[in-house]
Write a protein that binds this DNA or RNA. Structure first.
Length: 813
DNA sequence: GAGTTTGAAACT
DNA sequence: CAGTTTCAAACTC
């Protein structure tokens, strides 16, 4: 089944993949690991390859038949990843179609044997599919292991069959730094999310430049699966051991097989290179429809993924054809949005499996619902439901990169892949097929009904990063949803109640390469792809939209409603002003003549919609979507790299970041923010054409500036800390002194500091100052005298207060 | 806050 | 591709 049109498919992989780290992979690896692409004839869709030890993968896939197929096929290794997992604990989350939708936390100590089969010699933890399938709990989290396994169990038979077939765990964890989510869908393939060790630091979304940070980690989230998929990951076991290295470099190679009319198959081979000399690992993942997004990054700071249980339900409603996209510039944000297809079989029932992963500010939301699915899910709340689609999400990350989200707008295909490449945007691909019943129904956590209660977003909290995996039947959602939203896809973050509603309407015929697409771009439906369309959604957009609890975008008919995104984003939300609810990572633009549709505009250049900007005649919004798309196309025509990050990640890590084009400074010496290199805090390189450059390593001017900047920063921090401390002390003092008199406690009444007392104190201090002046004391001595006098005054006040208190107590006042 | 400087983007 | 113009941010006063 084709999820994406060949055209789109042909575009995606190359664009998305990080070409910097691409390298052809030998079929046999030094460590003995062999990665082979499936035969070209095989239409199986490899979701993601998961490889190396240090990497963290999350793959979700539903594969009806393939219990025996490894679904984590994509191998990407990045030292920096969106998901960071600290060390080796794993959470196993299993979703069982047969069981109730409720998520349960359950420690899982399964030992792995899967095809992907990695055994972590160090952690010794691995997940086996077969074992997971037997889990009755739909969602299992093993706190002890820090591993989450999402496993959908179709039936005991399936499990058995899979077992007999020698099915492997679809996820393999290594070193506990890996997050893997296997295909959700059919034959009970588990989703494994590996969580960071408890010892890890929470909330670690560190800047790209943080090479010193703890172990770099690689995380891949794969959602999707297909029965045809076959395991690509190289031979078992050896991968894990090598992954111990903290810094890994990922090399990915994508091969395009000739696209067949039906489903082009693409092979992506990723090779992991251990910067520390560890044995590289290679994996090959065939991808159907050639849609593979991979992100590779060099050294990446460790990030922690926290999973916590939340009762908030995140629901995605899909009704529209149009998706509004808005960007977020801040790195490390992942948004996965699945859009249900309006074309649903009425008789069929849908199941929504939203998965939210929040990393600090990053949120990954995956909702999966299907119209026709081979697997039936029996839940207490809902009738038999079938889960059809397999979605894979791969998330890899670069510290400074952004996430771009690609959202399939319609659902024909069962299998979808989502990957987050390491470049500036994170690409997330989701395809969800839902029945009509599930469309347009955002759910509010508040009005939860029994059905909603059944759907529990699972959030395992271990720090700043949170991952929630709510599982809700689509019908349930519908029942709960207070307001139906038509023609809109809603992305909801579980805990924050933030929602992203994306219209799913196909846009004007601009179909640029995905890689070059600026955020907020809605791609037209793929020819022959049914309703399938893609929206490239930069993570920031989610943030922007999430500012509003309910943002409704235009329906398929037009953009009229879409304007609400910006408008509502500025409106007070929940009684809070936009400023209060908005965390704005970037500066507002001040464009006056460009209509914010040229690269002069930072917002536009970053693929963001203008929001809370000071621009005039702004067209960089949904209201002018057509113009915006034209402008984007124009820019891309002029420069296909226009929307790519200018600062590429270095091949060896953050320290090697450099400007993609180099600067052309002539007068600033490259030591002012006019210089893009200096502004990005990187050195000028050989590709710069600057004149009189002083922005190089040994430049004394640069060092001086850096020192000054550091000193200023330290000063600011100190001042801030001092203010905070003082404020805290004052409030603490007030708290302690306030109630005393009436309560008869042991504290002194602040009421003794009356106006008169203050005046008298000031008089004393002034007198002391005069005295010092008259005696020609140096300033330091004068200050000392004044302070001493102040101390005396305080002592007298305290003494008087204490005395008064004693008197008061004696008379029972 | 107004005016100037600067360099990227856009244009020719 | 080079030169010029436009533009908005950075900077100065």
């Amino acid at each position: 089944m084709d999820v994406v049109s060949p055209e789109l498919n042909s575009l995606l992989p190359d664009e998305i993949m990080d070409t910097e780290a691409i390298e052809e992979i030998p079929q046999s690896q030094p460590d003995g690991t062999t990665a082979k692409p499936e035969s070209s004839g095989d239409t199986s869709v490899p979701m993601e390859t998961d490889t190396p030890a240090a990497s963290e993968n999350l793959s979700l896939s539903s594969d009806p038949s393939s219990t025996d197929h490894t679904q984590a096929l994509t191998t990407s290794i990045s030292t920096d990843s969106t998901f960071s997992i600290s060390s080796g604990s794993q959470l196993a989350v299993s979703i069982s179609s047969t069981s109730s939708p409720l998520l349960t936390l359950k420690p899982v100590m399964a030992t792995s044997t899967a095809t992907t089969k990695t055994t972590d010699s160090v952690t010794g933890t691995s997940v086996t599919t077969s074992g997971l399938q037997k889990l009755t709990a739909p969602f299992t989290i093993s706190a002890a292991n820090h591993q989450i396994i999402l496993n959908k169990v179709a039936s005991a038979q399936a499990s058995e069959a899979a077992k007999a077939a020698g099915t492997q765990p679809q996820i393999i964890k290594q070193e506990g730094q890996k997050l893997l989510v296997t295909a959700i869908g059919k034959s009970g393939q588990p989703i494994v999310l590996q969580l960071p060790h408890t010892g890890s630091k929470p909330g670690v979304s560190q800047a790209a430049g943080d090479a010193k940070s703890a172990a770099p980690q690689f995380k891949v989230v794969t959602i999707g699966g297909r029965s045809e998929l076959k395991p690509v990951v190289g031979g078992g076991g050896n991968q894990v051991t090598t992954l111990q290295a903290q810094q890994l470099k990922t090399v990915q190679i994508a091969k395009k097989t000739p696209t067949s009319s039906a489903a082009p198959i693409k092979f992506i081979i990723t090779k992991t290179v251990n910067s520390k000399g560890l044995s590289p690992q290679t994996s090959v993942s065939p991808v159907i429809a050639g849609r593979v997004l991979t992100q590779t990054s060099a050294v990446m700071p460790t990030r922690t993924i926290t999973l916590s249980e939340s009762h908030n339900t995140s629901i995605q409603s899909i009704a529209g054809k149009k998706i509004a996209i808005s960007p977020l510039k801040t790195p490390s944000k992942v948004t996965v949005v699945s859009v249900a297809s309006p074309t649903s079989n009425a008789s069929q029932k849908s199941v929504a499996l939203p998965v939210n992963v929040a990393l600090g500010q990053q949120i990954l939301t995956v909702q999966q619902s299907t119209s026709a699915s081979p697997v039936k899910v029996a839940t207490s709340q809902t009738t038999a439901q079938s889960i059809k689609p397999v979605q894979s999400v791969a998330v890899g990350g670069v510290g400074s990169s952004q996430f771009k989200t690609i959202i399939p707008l319609a659902t024909q295909p069962n299998v979808q892949q989502i990957q987050v490449p390491g470049s500036r945007f994170h690409y997330v691909r989701l395809v969800t097929a839902t029945t009509a019943s599930s469309t347009g129904q955002p759910s509010c956590p508040g009005p939860s009904t029994s059905s909603i209660q059944t759907a529990k977003p699972m959030v395992v909290g271990a720090g700043a990063v949170r991952m929630s995996v709510p599982i809700v039947p689509a019908q349930t959602i519908k029942q709960v949803a207070p307001k139906p939203l038509s023609s809109a896809a809603v992305v909801t973050t579980t805990q924050t109640q933030q929602r992203l509603i994306m219209p799913a309407t196909p846009l004007p015929q601009i179909q640029p390469n995905f890689a070059n697409l600026p955020p907020g771009t809605v791609l037209p439906l793929a020819p022959g792809g049914g309703n399938m369309g893609y929206a490239v959604v930069p993570a920031q957009y989610v943030t922007q939209i999430q500012q509003s609890p309910f943002v409704t975008l235009a329906s398929s008919s037009g953009f009229a409603a879409s304007t609400g995104v910006q408008t509502q984003a500025k409106l007070p939300l929940n009684g809070l002003s936009s400023a209060e609810t908005t965390s704005r990572p970037r500066k507002p633009c001040n464009c006056t003549k460009s209509q914010c549709l040229k690269l002069y505009c930072d917002c536009f250049a970053n693929g963001e919609f203008c929001n809370n900007c000071n621009c005039n005649n702004c067209f960089n919004n949904l209201e002018h979507e057509t113009e915006r798309l034209k402008a984007i196309k124009t820019c891309l025509d002029r420069n296909p790299e226009a929307f790519k990050p200018k600062i590429g990640k270095g091949k060896e890590g953050e320290s090697d970041r450099r400007h993609s084009k180099g600067c052309n400074c002539k007068r600033s010496g490259c030591l002012k923010n006019y210089c893009e290199c200096y502004e990005a805090k990187i050195m000028c390189s050989s590709i710069c054409k600057c004149i009189g450059c002083k922005n190089f390593e040994e430049s004394p001017e640069r060092k001086t500036l850096m020192h000054l900047a550091d000193a200023a920063e330290v000063r600011v921090q100190q001042q801030t800390a001092a203010k905070t401390k003082l404020s805290s002390q004052i409030s603490d003092l007030l708290m302690r002194t306030t109630p005393v008199i009436s309560s008869g406690g042991g504290r002194l009444p602040y009421t003794f500091v009356t106006k008169e007392v203050l005046e008298a104190t000031c008089e004393c201090l002034l007198e002391q100052a005069k005295k010092a002046e008259q005696t020609h004391q140096p300033q330091v001595e004068a200050e000392r005298m004044i302070l001493e006098e102040f101390g005396h005054c305080l002592m007298r006040i305290i003494s008087s207060a204490g005395k008064a208190k004693a008197d008061c107590a004696s008379i029972n006042c």
